[in-house]
């Protein structure tokens, strides 16, 4: 069988279109569903009028849709897309399917940064959330640097086990420091559950805009590195041989991924394992080629976290579960499964 067809590299336009439509449909479903179910038609009408600037009659549906559920669902979708994309990029870069913001301790580092900004009262006039977001980004990047530097010093091959071990230790250290900070912060910090298990409750459109900005800038950088990540996923030495500027690409991906994780943490706390679960599931369908896998991961991450958030707020209604509890339950099982398969098979994973 000869392959004469001229293959188009990259994600097709209809893939983007289908992904966008599906994501929007799930978002609409998540806005409608909840402790107070809302008809889809009415919900669409309210959102449509609000987008067009047409006055919407006051009442419970308007307040539930526009003030509570829509910003929350949008935050869930954007966080899910961002966290999943970061996980996929780090897994390609480090050639390690277990790399993720939560397993590497980057999320807890970011949470520590955001909490520190709040406790120390660091603020930027006119930009109420900028200081905590900035500190979360800085600490997330610093955490990744520390973890990789220590791991490299211990093991030049940056083996899976070494990185994960250092990440777990670093994560525990950051969480301990965060607990200490919360214990002494009085009323300044939200509950420890927010920072360790995450929550998207009460998020506003400002948070939506922060996440959207982060996803467009940092996510754009990560998506532009599809070809480079393919080369890294095959091997760093091989990447250099085919012409990838390895050091520059590595720094670019690490800065973009850790900054984006920092932004997500500052908005929704540490929502663990999204970057582990989603890329793993997507790889089973698309294969490891980042040209198909990264865009699919963006849509799947958004859909996954919107549905998980829906589950967290409805499954034990009126009690609301922290979203990170649900993602961690799924993620822990998947972590063990991937680790077991990669150790047992010794030939990598999908």
């Amino acid at each position: 069988m000869t392959q004469k067809t001229n293959r188009r590299e990259g994600f097709p336009w209809y893939g983007w279109a289908a992904g966008s439509v599906l994501t929007l449909l799930v978002a609409l479903l998540c806005v409608c569903a909840g402790s107070v179910p809302l008809p889809m038609g009415d919900t669409l009408a309210v959102i449509g009028r609000a987008i067009r600037g047409v006055p919407v009659s006051e009442g419970l549906p308007k307040s539930i849709i526009l003030s509570i559920r829509l910003p929350r669902v949008l935050c869930a979708g954007l966080s899910g897309a961002a966290l999943a994309l970061c996980g996929a990029a780090m897994q390609g870069l480090l050639r390690n399917p277990l790399a993720d913001g939560s397993t590497l301790g980057v999320s807890s580092g970011g949470a520590l940064g955001a909490a520190l900004a709040i406790v120390l009262g660091i603020s930027i006039p006119g930009l109420p959330l900028a200081a905590s977001t900035g500190m979360a980004m800085l600490f997330a990047f610093g955490s990744l640097m520390i973890i990789l530097t220590v791991a490299y010093a211990m093991d030049h091959s940056l083996a899976t086990q070494t990185i994960i071990l250092i990440g777990v230790i670093f994560s525990m250290l950051s969480s301990a420091l965060l607990s200490l900070l919360i214990a002494f912060s009085g009323e300044k910090l939200r509950s420890i559950t927010f920072w360790t298990m995450g929550s998207l409750s009460g998020r506003s459109y400002t948070h939506v805009l922060i996440l959207l900005f982060g996803l467009l800038v940092c996510g754009g950088v990560l998506l532009s590195q599809e070809a480079e990540l393919n080369a890294f996923a095959v091997g760093e030495e091989n990447a250099r041989h085919v012409g990838v500027p390895v050091r520059r690409v590595k720094m670019r991906v690490m800065i973009a991924a850790s900054a984006l994780i920092g932004i997500c943490v500052s908005v929704g706390g540490s929502i663990g394992f999204v970057g582990l679960i989603v890329p793993h599931m997507v790889r089973l369908v698309t294969g490891p080629n980042h040209r198909k896998m990264l865009p699919t991961t963006v849509f799947s991450g958004a859909i996954f976290l919107m549905l998980t958030d829906l589950m967290a707020r409805t499954v034990l209604s009126p009690i609301e579960l922290p979203i990170g509890v649900v993602t961690s339950l799924i993620g822990a099982v998947m972590f063990v499964s991937i680790f077991y398969r990669s150790r047992k098979g010794g030939r990598g994973v999908c």
């Binding site: 050639r95 390690n96 399917p97 393919n230 996923a233 095959v234 091997g235 030495e237 091989n238 041989h241 790889r283 294969g287 490891p288 080629n289 990669s342 990598g348 994973v349 999908c350």
Partner: peptide, 11 residues
Amino acid sequence: SQHHASGYAFT
């Protein structure tokens, strides 16, 4: 190179 090892199932 002397050694080749991909962790992922590329074609």
